[in-house]
Amino acid sequence: MNRFTKNLHYFSPTGKAGLIILSLFFLMAVFSARLTTHPHDVSSGKALMPPCFDHVLGTDDIGVDLWSQLVYGARISLLVGFLTAGISGCFGALVGMFAGYTGGWMDRFFMRIIDGMMVLPDLPVMIVLAAFFGPGLAQVILVLSLFSWVFTARIVRSRVLVIKQKEYVIYARISGAGPVYLMRKHLFPEVLPLVWVSMIRLAGKAIVAEAGLSFLGLGDPTSRSWGLIIYHATRFPGIYYTRFWTWWLLYPFLALSGMVLALAFVCRDLETLADPRMNQKISGGV
């Protein structure tokens, strides 16, 4: 806790704003039931009501309260984002470090897999996988993780490759340091900031990707995530010529952008925070 407040000191104003927004979304997700008066999955008013006292953000085409949907949607977005980031970040970091450090055929093996994964056009494969697994939140997270870990792995591996050539690592190895020691003492600390940053980025990407999959109609149709609200809104015939989009499309769009931007700002500060040497040099140097 103490460390957290100390670190908070390093956050820039935008980073702090990002943190505040993120925590607001977290609160929204945790206290969904208290924050809403209408159900989020069944209609509670007339269809396409503009924002009014009873329905703060209006209703959608089948009369479901939009504020409730947004509040419950925060849960899904956060869940998808952080679960995907967690799974793929951890896995990717492990694979990347392992492959980069051991080298040889293991490295080549993993690189072939990573290459293969990267080369496959992800969207069509996701479409096929989503069709194969069937829709559902767990499936969406699975599909997203399946495609996300390679990025962390690749970044980590290339960093490890460079570190391995550094003099102090070579000296350490010559002096008889074992691989576990090397990884723990030299590689891991060097790589960790990268992993953190890439994980936060992955969370943002996963939230966007979930929205993209939902936009294509491949999300969980019963989940009512923000992406799904946008999907239904954009598919509504004539959405751009009527006034409906001013509440139906705009608010989930804003929520989605807000969440993603908040993540990006936090990520930015973490990036400098994670590499204090770089930070000090810069503040002292230029």
Partner: peptide, 11 residues
């Protein structure tokens, strides 16, 4: 950059 790079391409 943050703003535009985060908004999905389709949007």
């Amino acid at each position: 950059m943050m703003f535009f790079s985060e908004i999905p391409a389709f949007l």
